[in-house]
Design a protein around this nucleic acid. Sequence first.
RNA 1: GCGGGAGUAGCUCAGCUGGCUAGAGCGUCAGCCUUCCAAGCUGAGGGUCGCGGGUUCGAAUCCCGUCUCCCGCUCCA
Length: 510
Amino acid sequence: MSTDQLKNVISHAKEYGYIFPSSEIYDGLSATYDYGQNGVELKNNIKKYWWMSMVQMHENIVGIDAAIFMHPTTWKASGHVDAFNDPLIDNKDSKKRYRADVLIEEHIAKIEAKIDKEVAKGIKRFGDDFDKEQFLATNPNVQRNKKKIEEIEVKMKEALTGDDLSKVKDLIEELGIACPVSGSKNWTDVRQFNLMFSTEIGSLAEGSNKIYLRPETAQGIFVNYLNVQKSGRKKIPFGIAQIGKAFRNEIIARQFIFRMREFEQMEMQFFVKPGTQKQWFDYWKETRINWHNALGLGEDNYRFHDHIKLAHYADAATDIEFNFPMGFKELEGIHSRTDFDLKAHEEHSGKKLQYFDPEENKSYVPYVVETSIGLDRMFLAIMASALQEETLADGSSRTVLKIPAPLAPIKVAVFPLTKKDGLPEKAREIINELKFDVECLYEEKDAIGKRYRRQDAAGTPFCITVDHDSLEDNTVTIRDRDTMEQKRVPISELSEIILSKVSMKRLLKN
RNA sequence: GCGGGAGUAGCUCAGCUGGCUAGAGCGUCAGCCUUCCAAGCUGAGGGUCGCGGGUUCGAAUCCCGUCUCCCGCUCCA
């Protein structure tokens, strides 16, 4: 796959009613997209598949739907207020972007390295008589550097906590910090990027009524975990699942629906006894990759990417990466989050978030193993791998969207072979039965071959054709999108045949 | 944000040394044909050439500004 493939996916998605640029008549809104008539069906089917596999198939997992707005302290506890608030600066020559505070800290680290060097020299000179503490307290070079560090730290704190980011730039210039790549000191101004969207709540903008749109759905689960545990009489280990929108004010939101500012997550937080997190982490790794593989998008298109550098909240983390048109990229994250989140919420809320374990006869804060998949990314993964250009035996080609049948927006299209002789009426009759089971579509325009190809491109897995024999013997042909093969079957068996191929059961039993 | 590329019909694009009513293919719609894998015939609809300004008798075309999209750099689901 290539970037050309991404372009094909984008235009195909638009042409067949899957995804439209948002507010297109106003030239669109950057990195915002709307799901069209087919897109919403596919998206809902992905959600359904996930929800059934997580909630319905696990008796110890239940779902919730938390509000997008949350108490502002939530985001202090989660670390998002600090971690998502970065002062950034660009080097104009190398075009590299850095976090301004990191640049300054690296500068401090360099000075510290100088002190260490001085100490090493001292050891060499005085040998066994070397008194490190005395040396650090008296050596003039060390003293000078120590003072430097202190000064920088004070200034940095002042500059970063104040409203005036130009002071941060002044400090960088004052220290003569150069870009590690270009070596130049040609910097842009420092700009603050807060990845959380904020708005005001209440009728007055005055006062501190600032609230955030949630940057992840997980916190809605954490703050509710005791409510669910108690009202549902849940015993550990148990899980809470949620599907919902989250918002991040990405500096760069690109690559179609891969990175959007408004996106949808499907998350499940699994609460376990401390010490068992590793085994559950492994369990969910396997369970989740099986969920993906059951779709048949190609096992080679997936790979695990284990995190070496872990986030502040995790003791193990892996990504399930998918081979998107732009290469292998993260599709789902599986994180062992320890008790970081619940402990933080205990601290900030002053409420105990402990679970009483009747087996152990003691209370503890559970550990959490999280699975978190980007719904829009899953959508893109399916679209990108499903869209294929096939060369047929006769040398002609066809465009086919091989969406896994249970996820396809329209499951079956019904065609009368011709527009007369009562064939349309017979076709309508069939639809009027089938529509209780699956999404159907009726089509009588153009040659039959053309109608087949149109449904191939739209992703409809089955086409039923009513011909003159149908009127005699109540049989029709059913054509398979992927193999293009046709079978003649009794109308009375249609529902059963189709359901066996498009029901979620087929995927979930895997 | 910085650098590169691009905005003309639903889609893919041509036209861009300024000059007839802005075109093609595919798609869409209506009718004919009645045929099991996109290809027949007839007709129709669809564009203020991204937007604003300027130069000019005249701008899709030249100039300025602006917006949007795509690719790369950082972060993440």
